[in-house]
C-alpha cells in the first residue's frame, strides 16, 4: 500500500492542468483509445481495412472528377498522390474533430458516474483518428512506390511537424467544441457543416497557388489545416510554401489550442451537472 494521499476538494480549482494527475491516469488514455478502436470495427467484415478503403475510394473519386475531368493543377505531382497526401492529414483532422466534439456527450453516462481528468476523452478520440491515419499512411507509402514518387529527405522534419500541428489544431478545436456541445446541443448540427466548409477552405483537392484573390488566401490561412497540408506536401513537391501564410496558420493553430483547452478546463467541473 502506498502512503496516504491527502487532497482537498473545493469549489473551484484555479490550476490550468494538473499534469501529475494526467500522468497518473495515463493508462486511461490507452484504454479509451483501445475501446473506441475495438468498437469502431466490431461487427464489420472488413474491419481495419475500412481505415484504408475510405481514403482510397475518396482518392479515386477526386482523381476522376478534379484531376481528369477538371484538370486541376497538382504542383508537379501525379494528381492521385497530390490528393491522397492532402486527404491523409485532412482525414485525421476531420474524423478527429468530429469524434472529439461528440465525445463528451457520447460518454455522458461515464462522466456522471466516475471521476477522471475529462480531457482524456477528447484526446482519446483524436488518438483513434491517429490510428486510422497510421493505417492509411501505410497505404500512402504504397502509393508513393506505385507512382515512383521521389521524396525529399526533409520529410523527417516536415512530416512530424505537420502531424504535430494537425493534432494540436484538432485538439484545440475539438476540445472547445466538445465542451460547447455539452452545454449547447446545437453544436451537434454545426460540426458536420463546419467540417464541410473547412474542407473546401483547405488546399486538399487544389493548390493554394490557384487562388488569386489575396483576401481569400489570408482567410484560408486562418485555418491551421493550411499549414498542415502545405508542410506535409513540401517534401513531395519541393515547392517552398508561402511562409507568410504558413506563420498565420501556425499562430491560429496555437491560439486554437489555448482557447480550446482553457475553455474546456473552465467548464470541465460542471460537465456532470449539464450532461
Amino acid at each position: 500500500m502506498t502512503e496516504p494521499i491527502e487532497y482537498r476538494i473545493e469549489s473551484t480549482s484555479l490550476k490550468l492542468f494538473d499534469v501529475q494527475e494526467l500522468w497518473r491516469y495515463r493508462e486511461l488514455f490507452y484504454f479509451f483509445t483501445w475501446r473506441d478502436i475495438k468498437i469502431k470495427y466490431k461487427q464489420t467484415v472488413l474491419g481495419f481495412l475500412w481505415a484504408i478503403l475510405q481514403p482510397l475510394l475518396m482518392m479515386v473519386i477526386f482523381t476522376l472528377f478534379f484531376g481528369k475531368a477538371l484538370n486541376i493543377p497538382s504542383q508537379n505531382l501525379p494528381y492521385p498522390v497530390y490528393v491522397f497526401s492532402g486527404l491523409l492529414v485532412w482525414n485525421l483532422f476531420s474524423t478527429g474533430l468530429t469524434s472529439a466534439s461528440n465525445s463528451m456527450v457520447n460518454n455522458a453516462l461515464i462522466i456522471k458516474k466516475i471521476y477522471f481528468p475529462r480531457l482524456i476523452i477528447p484526446v482519446s478520440s483524436i488518438l483513434v483518428a491517429l490510428f486510422d491515419f497510421l493505417m492509411a499512411f501505410i497505404l500512402f507509402g504504397g502509393i508513393l512506390l506505385v507512382y515512383r514518387q521521389p521524396v525529399s529527405w526533409q520529410l523527417i522534419i516536415y512530416w512530424p511537424l505537420a502531424l504535430l500541428l494537425c493534432v494540436v489544431g484538432t485538439l484545440g478545436l475539438g476540445s472547445w467544441l466538445s465542451a460547447l456541445n455539452v452545454k449547447y446541443r446545437d453544436f451537434r448540427y454545426v460540426i458536420p457543416f463546419l467540417v464541410q466548409v473547412l474542407f473546401f477552405l483547405t488546399p486538399v483537392i487544389y493548390p493554394v497557388s490557384m487562388l488569386t484573390n489575396v483576401y481569400l488566401k489570408y482567410t484560408l490561412a486562418l485555418s491551421p489545416m493550411l499549414a498542415v497540408v502545405e508542410l506535409f506536401r513540401f517534401p513531395l513537391t519541393g515547392i517552398a510554401p508561402d511562409w507568410g501564410l504558413l506563420s498565420i496558420s501556425l499562430t491560429s493553430g496555437t491560439v486554437l489550442l489555448l482557447v480550446g483547452i482553457i475553455y474546456f478546463k473552465r467548464t470541465e467541473d460542471f460537465f456532470a451537472d449539464l450532461a
Binding site: I5, I9, Y115, D269
Partner: peptide
C-alpha cells in the same frame, strides 16, 4: 458525487486522506 469529485461543491472543503 461531490465526495467522488464528479461535481464540485459550491462552497466548503473536503479533506480526504485516502484514495
Amino acid at each position: 458525487k461531490i465526495l467522488s469529485k464528479i461535481t464540485p461543491p459550491t462552497s466548503g472543503t473536503i479533506i480526504s486522506r485516502g484514495r
